[in-house]
Simulated scan of single mutants.
Amino acid sequence: MRWLVLFLSVFSSISLRAPVAIAATSIARTIVVNLKGGGDFKSIQQAIDSVPDNNNKWTKIHVAAGVYREKVNVKSTKSYVVLEGDGAQTTSIEWGDYNGDSSGHTTNTSATFTSYASNFVAKRITFKNTYNGFAKLTPAVAAWISGDKSAFYDCRFIGFQDTIADMHGRHYFKRCYIEGVVDFIFGYGQSIYERCKISTVKSLQQPGYVTAQGRNSASDNSGFVFKWCTISGPQATYLGRAWKHYSRVIFYQTFMSDIIVPAGWYIWNSKGYEGVVTFAESGCIGPGSDLSGRVKWEKQVINFCYKARLQME
Rank of each mutant, 00 (worst) to 15 (best):
Ile22Met: 04
Trp265Asp: 01
Met167Ala: 11
Ser115Met: 07
Ala21Cys: 05
Glu94Met: 14
Thr254Gln: 05
Gly100Glu: 12
Trp3Asp: 13
Phe226Asp: 13
Val63Trp: 02
Asp40Asn: 15
Ser79Phe: 00
Gly38Ile: 06
Asp148Phe: 12
Trp243Arg: 07
Gly275Lys: 13
Arg175His: 12
Ala236Cys: 07
Leu291Phe: 01
Ser76Glu: 07
Gly264Trp: 00
Lys202Pro: 08
Ser13Val: 15
Ala165Met: 11
Arg17Asn: 13
Pro262Val: 14
Val51Gly: 01
Asp183Ser: 10
Val74Trp: 01
Ala236Gln: 13
Lys244Met: 08
Ile260Leu: 04
Thr112Ile: 05
Val121Gln: 09
Ser26Pro: 03
Asn132Asp: 12
Gly223Val: 07
Lys36Arg: 08
Ser115Glu: 10
Asp183Trp: 03
Lys307Cys: 03
Val181Leu: 06
Tyr68Gly: 11
Arg69Met: 12
Ser15Ile: 15
Ile14Asp: 15
Val72Ala: 13
Gln235Ser: 12
Leu137Asp: 04
Gly288Ile: 03
Ala47Gly: 09
Ile164Lys: 00
Gly66Pro: 06
Thr30Leu: 09
Asp258Ser: 07
Met312Phe: 08
Ser79Val: 00
Phe255Asn: 01
Phe160Lys: 01
Val72Pro: 06
Met167Phe: 11
Ala151Pro: 04
Tyr131Phe: 14
Ala308Tyr: 01
Ser199His: 02
Asn216His: 05
Ala151His: 05
Ile93Lys: 04
Ile231Arg: 03
Arg309Ser: 03
Leu291Met: 06
Val5Ala: 08
Met167Glu: 13
Thr91Arg: 05
Ile259Val: 04
Gly189Arg: 04
Val51Cys: 02
Gly288Pro: 02
Arg29Tyr: 14
Tyr306Val: 09
Phe184Ile: 08
Ser115Phe: 07
Val32Met: 07
Gly96Ser: 11
Phe224Gly: 05
Cys196Trp: 12
Lys299Ile: 00
Arg195Glu: 14
Glu70Gly: 05
Pro19His: 04
Phe186Lys: 10
Tyr98Met: 08
Pro52Phe: 14
Phe184Gly: 07
Val301Trp: 06
Glu84Phe: 03
Arg17Asp: 13
Asp220Trp: 09
Cys284Ala: 01
Tyr68Met: 11
Ser115Cys: 14
Ser289Ile: 00
Thr112Ala: 10
Thr90Glu: 09
Ser9Trp: 04
Ala65Glu: 13
Ala122Thr: 01
Thr109Ile: 12
Ser102Phe: 02
Ser247Ile: 03
His62Arg: 10
Gly214Arg: 15
Leu83Trp: 05
Ala47Val: 06
Thr109His: 10
Leu291Glu: 09
Lys36Met: 03
Phe160Tyr: 12
Phe113Thr: 04
Trp144Phe: 08
Phe184Lys: 09
Leu239Ile: 05
Trp243Asp: 09
Thr107Ala: 11
Ile93Gln: 01
Arg69Pro: 02
Gln205Phe: 01
Gln235Asn: 11
Gly286Leu: 10
Gly288Trp: 00
Gly283Pro: 05
Lys78Gln: 12
Lys123Glu: 07
Tyr238Ser: 02
Tyr98Trp: 11
Gln300Asp: 01
Ala88Arg: 15
Ile185Arg: 00
Pro287Ile: 02
Ile267Trp: 07
Lys136Val: 06
Gly288Val: 05
Val121Pro: 04
Phe120His: 08
Lys307Arg: 02
Gly133Glu: 11
Phe41Trp: 13
Lys197Gly: 06
Val32Thr: 13
Ser191Glu: 04
Ala135Leu: 07
Gln253Ala: 09
Ser232Gly: 01
Gly100Ser: 14
Ile61Cys: 11
Gln300Ile: 01
Phe152Ser: 02
His245Cys: 04
